[in-house]
Design a protein around this nucleic acid. Structure first.
Lengths: 137, 137
DNA sequence: GTGTTTGCAAAGAATTTGCAACGAA
DNA sequence: TTCGTTGCAAATTCTTTGCAAACAC
């Protein structure tokens, strides 16, 4: 359940707040680090809104993306994942279970002066592949 | 045109060398850093083999992947790109022109002990987004 | 009331699969 | 000869689009 302030926040960004959008936003806020696919969101929201269609999921996510509220990710699969966390951060992907883990600190990237001068780097994403703690031994 | 040694190398990996596969391998070797999509490869090879189908492109790439000769990449789009360069390296993606540039050196990643202990990291991929030299100014 | 959103169905893009004919070794 | 490959077409998966009815504001 989103607070009135939260709803107002989204409304002030120019989003018309429909019940469907509320449900999608609730899902995203509740599963902040889950990197859901459109399918994940659809399945969840469909329970409360049986008439919900994929078009609405994609429309809403597109509207959120335009306002900088979500980021699209393509991770080792031919489908989008949506990340409500738009703060720069990195990801660890478990090749065993497919889990995607956010890494906010403990990662530092150094770049040579040559690249810094040649390329205008706006964002750095580090993607780790390996076996997560749960899948080990 | 692939050399006999090169062809023998592929054959020794258990690949049956058909003319179609030769054309695909030639394309990949000639465009080593191009990160082509299946479509790119298809278009090129179709010129010499008008009967070429996407199924053959995908089949061949799958066979190459199984032998560790290509890597699949998903970069900011819902389609695969194929990288013949399987040596660990990083990528710069130009958000202006879509060009993907290989970075082999000048990039260093430091990880905290905590992550190193918790997660079994097998591969690190750094993905830079920004404006490439050609698109600046 | 106005303009946006919803949701259906259809279209589109990328990839995969089934299978008969073919061809490399 | 044998078994893997080719290539067509159909199926699948994911995403987008057109449009009339519904709804937020």
């Amino acid at each position: 359940m989103l607070s009135e302030e939260r709803i107002e926040y989204y409304r002030n960004l120019g989003l018309k707040i429909t019940p469907q959008r509320l449900a999608i936003l609730e899902y995203l806020e509740k599963h902040f680090t889950a990197h859901p696919t459109a399918e994940d969101i659809y399945r969840y929201v469909k329970e409360r809104f049986p008439s919900m269609s994929f078009a609405t999921v994609y429309n809403t996510l597109e509207a959120l993306k335009e306002r900088g509220l979500v980021k699209e990710l393509y991770i080792e699969e031919g489908k989008k994942r949506f990340d409500l966390n738009v703060q720069p951060h990195h990801h660890f992907y478990c090749t065993s279970c497919g889990r995607l883990i956010d890494l906010h600190e403990g990662v530092k990237v150094e770049i040579s002066e040559r690249f810094k001068n040649k390329l205008n780097i706006l964002e750095i994403r580090v993607f780790f592949l390996g076996i997560c703690d749960r899948c080990q031994g």
